[in-house]
Structure formats: structure tokens, C-alpha cells
Simulated assay, not measured.
Amino acid sequence: MNLHCIYHVLHRRRRVVLMLTLRKYLYIVLCVSVVLIVYKVICFKYKITSGYSSYVNMTNRRGRIIYSNEDVYMAIKQIRFNNCLNKYANDICADLQSCESFSELKTLEGCDNTIQCRSRINETKAVNLNLKKCKRRLPGAIIIGTYKSGTRELIDFLAMNPLVVIKRQPNYEVAYFDKNADKGLDWYRNAMPFSCERQITIEKSPSYFTSLEAPRRIHKMDKNIKLILIVRNPSDRTLSHLTYEHFIIKEQFKNDIHNCLYKYTFNRRIINENCFAVKDSFYDSAMERFLKYFSSEQIHIIDADAFLKNPCDIVKDVEHFLQIDTFINCDNFFRNNDTGFVCAKTNRTDLGFCYEKTRGRVKLQSKFPVMKMDLQKLFKSHNERFFSLVGKRFDW
């Protein structure tokens, strides 16, 4: 009897132990499942994905995106220095970087008279005492247009090449050859950043392309200069330009953007060709003015749609056009699927750096019930003439 009781007690205890063990494993499996679910949610929320088949697959499941125009360029500065170290000796890269610091010094000289400010200035001056070849130079290339076609992204991404120095402080656009020519060439040179002998300075002013005087004035400064033109579907560019200027010109057009885009003739609504955004989309007449002074070999034309889809290859093409050493690495580009725009990514961080979400204003554009077919009809003959002038066609 006692043995029988002992057997039942042991058997019951074994069952209890087995149940506790199973419960323990079930609890572990449940915890692991929860962790995996949370991990997938976080990855979905912060994933960074490359949208280009020619790029390395850059789905970054642990990364996140920072939306800041200034941080984009800070990332590009890190990329350009790393690119330099991959090809040049340390001392050459140090000289190039020191010359850029000298440009920052000139900007800092206007800062508040704080200890930190003075310390930074003195430190930069000490570094640059012997940089006699570091000076302001006139541009060797100019991005002449067009408005709302990606000129900001183009010039920033070109700066990934350490041999390219871009004009960006305090403002990107100088507009010297159309709006400030009376200030003289010395003023223009002083508006440029410092650069070394082996570097090329590039500025962008999209207003040059539609200017009546800019082609002649640019040619007078340097008849051998290289020009870069990025063009976008004229109908899309017109709407984008109107959207961008919407808040600036509201009062001028009685709070209705359509008062610029349209006019009425005999009670019939037609496109107003004198509207600034429409006038800037007649590429044929603008191109003809530039070809009067420059050969087609001096003007590198970029399709804005192609640049949006594959900026890496487009920027590489510009490197070849400028006849400089190539540095651009496709691993430093990725598409932000939330905005549709291209962003920068360094090799040493999981962070992606993108322009602020307001860039592009796609949602705002949709608020204007503009008849795109009217614009396409208006621009059709002008587009054909432009294709004939440049010797290539675009899908407009």
C-alpha cells in the first residue's frame, strides 16, 4: 500500500514537472514571437530602400531617415572626404578639406563674438596660413537651368566629388549674369567659395536659361566655360513653378493662381503665355540664345526624369563632361519611398539624409485643377523645335 502511494506521488510529481517545463517553453516561444512582430513593425516603419536596379540593394532594416536640408550637405561633405581618401593621399585630401574650411571661416567671421566663435576662427586661420593656392575662383562650369527641375539636388550630389566646389553659402543662386551684372566681375568672384588649383568651382542659377542677356555675358567672361542644363517636361515644370511661387504671388494675382495661368479671349479660356511659369517653359527660344554663343559640345543636357530615376549614373556622366577624376559611388544614393525623392547615405552610418518633406509640394500641386492637356498642346511645337536644336528627344 505504501509502495503504491509512493508510485502515484512520484508519477504526479513527474507530470507536474513536465507541465511546468512545457509551460516554460511555450512562454519562451511566445516572447520570441512578440519580439519578432515588434521588430518587423519597426523595420517597416524605418526601412530605407533603394529604388534603382543598378544599385546595391540598400534596404536598411535598422536605419532611419533624417529630414534636414543642412544635414544632407553635411552627409555629402563626409562622403566627399571619404571618396578623396579612397583615391588620393592623406595630405592632398587634407589640403582640399582645409581650403573648404577657409570658406567656412569667411562665413563665421560674421558670427557672434563668442569664445567658441573666436576659437573656431583662430583655429581655422592657423590651419590655412600656408594655403597660398587656396583662393576664390570664377566658375569653370555653371548649371544654367531650369527652374523646378532638380538643380539643387544636382549641384549637391556633384559635391560628392572632392574636385568639385559648389557655391551654396549664404545662398545657392547668385543670379549674376541676369540680375547683378552691374556689380562687376570682382563681386561675382568674391561670391564664390575658396578652392584649390585642382578643383573646379560650380554655381547654379536657373534664371540664366531664360535670360536675354545671360548667354552673351557668360560668353564674355569665359567663352570656353562648360554649361549644364537639366530640363523637365514643360507642362510638369510649369505646374511645379506655379506651386512653388504660390504664396509669393497670391496678392499679385488676387489670391488665385489661375489668374496667372489663364486668360479669357472672347469668353474662351486659354493659356496665358505671358504668365512667368509658362514663359520659362519655352525651351526652344532659350536654347537658341545659348547656341548663338556656345557650341552644343559645351552644353551638357540632362533629362530631369532620368535624373530622378537614376541620379548616380547622371552625376557620373557630368563628371565625364567636366573631364575630372571620377569619384561618385552609387552606394551613397537611395530613394525615399515616402517622398519619391533621392537621398544621401554615408558608408559609416545606418542613417539616411533626405531633403525636408515640403520639397516638391506634390500634394499642393494636386489642389490646382489645371488642364494639363492645354499645356501639352501649347508646348508641343516648341518641344519639337527644342529636340531639333539639341539633337535628342525626351518623352514629353
Results as ranks from 00 to 15, higher is better:
321 F>P: 04
102 F>S: 07
21 T>H: 14
74 M>W: 00
133 K>H: 15
327 F>N: 07
385 R>Y: 02
64 R>H: 09
96 L>E: 00
206 P>H: 00
277 A>Y: 01
221 M>N: 10
88 Y>T: 01
290 F>S: 03
221 M>F: 10
79 I>M: 06
277 A>G: 14
244 Y>I: 07
356 E>L: 06
314 I>D: 03
48 I>L: 14
334 F>V: 02
68 S>K: 08
131 L>G: 13
373 M>Y: 11
379 F>M: 10
373 M>G: 11
161 N>L: 01
366 S>R: 14
373 M>D: 15
114 T>M: 07
208 Y>P: 10
247 F>A: 06
364 L>K: 11
310 N>K: 06
376 Q>V: 03
82 N>V: 06
346 T>N: 02
367 K>E: 13
122 N>Q: 08
220 K>T: 07
332 N>A: 09
63 G>C: 03
49 T>W: 01
390 V>M: 03
194 F>H: 15
273 E>K: 15
45 K>G: 11
161 N>G: 07
356 E>M: 13
374 D>N: 13
164 V>E: 01
252 Q>P: 02
44 F>L: 13
236 D>T: 09
203 E>I: 02
388 S>D: 12
206 P>C: 10
290 F>P: 03
288 E>C: 09
303 D>Q: 02
268 R>W: 01
45 K>I: 00
64 R>C: 11
132 K>S: 15
360 G>Y: 00
28 I>H: 10
173 E>R: 10
39 Y>V: 02
295 S>T: 12
230 I>A: 09
327 F>H: 08
165 V>P: 05
148 K>D: 01
48 I>V: 09
377 K>M: 09
7 Y>T: 08
265 T>E: 13
320 H>T: 12
257 I>E: 08
370 V>Q: 08
298 Q>M: 11
117 C>S: 14
34 V>G: 08
195 S>R: 07
242 L>S: 12
155 I>E: 12
201 T>G: 04
133 K>G: 14
223 K>E: 11
337 N>Y: 14
300 H>D: 09
130 N>D: 13
246 H>E: 08
329 N>L: 04
42 I>P: 03
120 R>H: 07
157 F>R: 06
301 I>H: 12
391 G>Y: 01
305 D>S: 14
56 V>R: 09
169 Q>M: 10
251 E>Q: 13
393 R>P: 02
129 L>T: 14
48 I>Y: 05
216 R>T: 06
352 G>Y: 07
271 I>K: 00
375 L>Y: 01
95 D>V: 04
359 R>K: 14
268 R>P: 00
206 P>I: 05
388 S>C: 03
211 S>K: 08
333 F>N: 01
133 K>S: 15
60 N>C: 04
291 L>N: 02
63 G>K: 05
394 F>C: 07
205 S>Q: 10
329 N>M: 01
287 M>I: 03
370 V>S: 08
54 S>I: 05
208 Y>R: 10
98 S>V: 06
228 I>K: 02
62 R>L: 08
46 Y>M: 01
270 I>T: 15
387 F>V: 03
333 F>L: 05
140 G>D: 02
390 V>I: 15
244 Y>S: 05
146 T>M: 03
10 L>V: 12
